[in-house]
Computed example of a mutant assay.
Amino acid sequence: MSSPQLQPNGAFVEANKTRTTRWSSFFKKLAKNKAAIAGAIIVLLFVILAALAPLIAPYDPKLPDMSKKLETPSGEHWLGTDDKGRDILSRLLFGARISLMVGILSTVLGAFVGIILGIVSGYYGRWIDSLIMRICDVLLAFPGILLALAIVSILGSSTTNVIIAVAFFAVPTFARIVRGSTLTVKKLEYIDAIRAMGATDFRIIFKHIFPNIVSPIIVQATLYIASAIITASALSFLGMGTQPPTPEWGTMLSDGRSYVSYAPHLTLFPGIAILLVVIGFNLFGDGLRDALDPKSNK
């Protein structure tokens, strides 16, 4: 009577041990990647600054003061003021909230739809696969910024519509990645065994396939956030995104371009902020990819 009980318990312990070893190996690889750690620190720093913006911003980011317009960095205004006398540091801090929110929400929304389409396409195949992949091919044929511009032009200029536009372009990218991973996992023998035991498609997909394809999704999501931030900033720069006086990095670049010859700080600091955040997400995403790759010894 004791042996049947010990066997499943032993299998359970062994499975937990394997899972623990896998995660331990992942964190060790990630910790050894100095570039990934640097990227994570940059991203975490901007997230903290954005979260604490109402507490640490020295001035109201929307309140103009024409008597102090176009001031260079000083003790009173560390990063100077813009053409309406607003404190650039305060606008950068509050702008980080908009840029990070757009990047993260658009990526989550696009990934959610793309994952569903990719799993359905890879698992069921046949005409469903052909239809979804042809739609994805058509969307991928357009440059991301042009597709986003077209969508925002139809929906109107606002932060919400920017999120929808950027998410829309993310869908085919995630769908193709998930489809390829699903096709690989679906061919494994244990999936056939589970199906033979009478498991439903829903259980097979979300209980056994999805957990095994999470790694490439996480990596792609991390990398896409950087792309989403650039696209959102570009739309705002063109006047199609977040509208003034709401502080946003792309809008700040657009407002400062007329004064770049004698007040370069108006565009310098928002540009540096965008550069650092994008580099941070890219470095962290590359580190995740290396750490999650079982063939990588980095």
Rank of each mutant, 00 (worst) to 15 (best):
G144Y: 04
G80I: 07
G144K: 07
L89V: 03
G125R: 06
M133Y: 05
P73K: 04
I98F: 02
W127F: 14
P64G: 10
K68W: 00
A141W: 10
P64H: 10
L89C: 03
R86K: 11
A96L: 13
G80K: 09
L89E: 02
M101H: 00
P64Q: 10
L70P: 05
L109E: 00
M133G: 03
V108A: 14
V102Y: 09
I135E: 04
L140E: 04
V102N: 06
R126C: 00
I128Y: 11
D87Q: 10
L79P: 03
S106P: 04
G118T: 09
T81N: 00
L79F: 15
S90N: 10
S67Y: 11
L105F: 14
I116C: 01
R86E: 04
D87W: 07
R97I: 03
G75N: 11
L105E: 04
V102G: 03
G80P: 07
L139E: 13
G85Q: 07
A111D: 07
V120R: 01
K84H: 08
G103P: 08
S99W: 08
L109S: 12
L93Y: 02
F142G: 01
V120M: 14
H77Y: 15
F142S: 02
M101E: 12
F94R: 02
P64V: 08
R97S: 09
S67K: 13
R134T: 05
L100H: 03
M66F: 15
G85L: 06
T107D: 07
L89D: 04
K68S: 13
S121N: 12
L79S: 01
G110V: 01
W78E: 00
R86H: 02
R86I: 00
D82W: 04
M66E: 04
W78I: 14
I135T: 13
S106N: 08
F142R: 05
W127Y: 13
K69P: 00
L131S: 14
I128T: 15
S121Q: 09
S106V: 03
G144C: 05
S90G: 11
V108M: 12
A96M: 13
D87K: 05
A111P: 06
P64D: 10
V113P: 01
P73E: 05
G75K: 10
P143Y: 11
I104A: 12
G95M: 09
L109F: 15
R134Q: 12
S130H: 12
R134C: 09
S67M: 13
R97A: 03
C136R: 00
G144E: 13
V120K: 10
R97Y: 06
L131M: 14
D82M: 02
T107I: 09
I104W: 06
S130E: 15
R126N: 15
A141Q: 07
M66T: 12
H77F: 15
I132F: 15
K69L: 12
D137M: 09
G125M: 08
L92C: 05
I98G: 03
L139N: 08
I119A: 12
G103M: 11
L109N: 00
E76Y: 06
D137R: 09
F112G: 04
L140H: 03
V138R: 01
R91S: 07
L79V: 03
G125W: 11
L89Y: 07
E76N: 13
